[in-house]
Amino acid sequence: MYQTLDIERQGAVATLWMNRPDVFNAFDEQLIADLHAACTALDADDSVRIVVLAGRGKHFSAGADLNWMKRASGYTEAENRADALRFAGMLRALSGMRKPTIARVQGAALGGGTGLTAACDMAIASEDASFATSEVKFGIIPAVISPYVLRAIGPRHALRYFQSAERIGARRALEMGLVGEVVPLQDLDAAVQKLADTLLTCGPGAQFAAKQLVGAVNARPIDDATTEETARRIAAQRATEEAKDGITAFLDKRPPQWMAQA
């Protein structure tokens, strides 16, 4: 179905493999279009509970394809805006999925590769992984990926790395919050599988509601409006059939329905 992607299914876990290893899974128009379409399709598939984003070969993604960058350098401002909106739409489709997303990162994750990592809900990296918001080295800025990277590392780190384009090693990325776990390369798949298995024990509707909760509450003051908002959200979730089954299952010492269906 896709020119630049492979999708592997293992039960309720779908792994979305970027498959351009000859160019280190660098972005071009086709990969962006394929990623957007695949994220949309997987999000609509209720048999998929977890989405893992990965890259074939030695590297997760080396960022923008040089040929794509060369073409873009000749675009008008309007053409560049349309091109950037396609990239932004893909990242938003990935970030906004109703199900948990995990970035499986090895090797280089530069520019847009850092953006992809940050757009996923969580990320596990191998010890050889490295990141960079390298755009300023080319006289451009990491504009489209900035909302996701800022969400992950905060404005103080962003002020440095957006301007310096320094390489960020896996351990430093862990300290900054860009990734949640760093493991030896040979243990990367096992670590991703362990996290996916943990996620599958939780209610899918509750997971999406929890993702929305983070977006709604983050950076808000703890005031009457926030108190009312959080109370409204838990009340709505408690009234769902999923919540009723989850609580009953715990009291009855049985697995909830979503685990039986996984």
Rank of each mutant, 00 (worst) to 15 (best):
E8A: 15
E8M: 10
Q10D: 14
T15A: 07
T15L: 08
M18G: 02
M18W: 01
D22G: 09
V23H: 00
V23C: 05
N25E: 02
A26M: 02
F27V: 04
D28K: 01
L31A: 04
A33K: 01
A37V: 07
A38F: 06
T40W: 03
A41P: 01
A41W: 01
L42E: 11
D43V: 06
D46L: 12
D46R: 12
V52M: 06
A54V: 06
G55L: 04
G57C: 08
G57Q: 05
S61T: 03
A64Q: 02
D65F: 00
L66S: 12
N67I: 09
W68E: 09
W68N: 03
M69F: 06
M69T: 04
M69Y: 01
R71Q: 12
R71Y: 02
A72P: 00
S73M: 11
S73T: 06
G74T: 07
G74S: 10
Y75I: 02
T76D: 06
E77I: 15
A78H: 11
A82L: 12
A82T: 13
A82V: 12
D83C: 10
D83K: 07
F87R: 04
R92P: 01
A93W: 05
S95F: 07
S95I: 00
S95T: 05
M97A: 10
T101N: 06
A103F: 07
A103P: 03
A103K: 01
A108L: 08
T117N: 06
A119C: 11
C120E: 04
D121T: 03
D121E: 08
D121R: 02
M122N: 05
M122C: 11
I124P: 00
A125E: 01
E127A: 14
E127P: 04
D128E: 11
A129G: 09
A129C: 12
F131D: 00
F131S: 03
A132W: 00
T133Q: 06
K137S: 14
I141A: 15
I141M: 14
A143G: 13
I145G: 04
S146P: 01
Y148F: 14
V149K: 01
V149T: 07
I153L: 10
R156P: 01
H157T: 13
L159F: 12
R160M: 15
F162K: 00
A165C: 10
A165D: 06
E166F: 06
R167E: 08
I168G: 04
R171F: 13
A173E: 01
A173D: 05
A173Q: 02
A173S: 10
L178R: 05
V179N: 01
V179F: 09
E181F: 09
V182L: 11
L185Y: 13
L185N: 10
A191K: 04
T201A: 13
T201C: 10
T201S: 13
C202K: 09
P204L: 08
Q207K: 08
Q212A: 13
L213F: 08
V214F: 06
G215S: 02
G215C: 03
A216T: 02
A216H: 03
A216F: 02
N218R: 14
A219V: 10
A219H: 11
R220Q: 15
P221D: 10
D223W: 07
T226L: 15
T226I: 15
T227E: 12
T227M: 13
A231V: 12
R232F: 12
R233Y: 09
R233F: 07
A235E: 09
R238L: 14
R238K: 10
A243L: 00
A243M: 04
I247S: 07
I247H: 04
I247P: 00
A249K: 05
M259A: 12
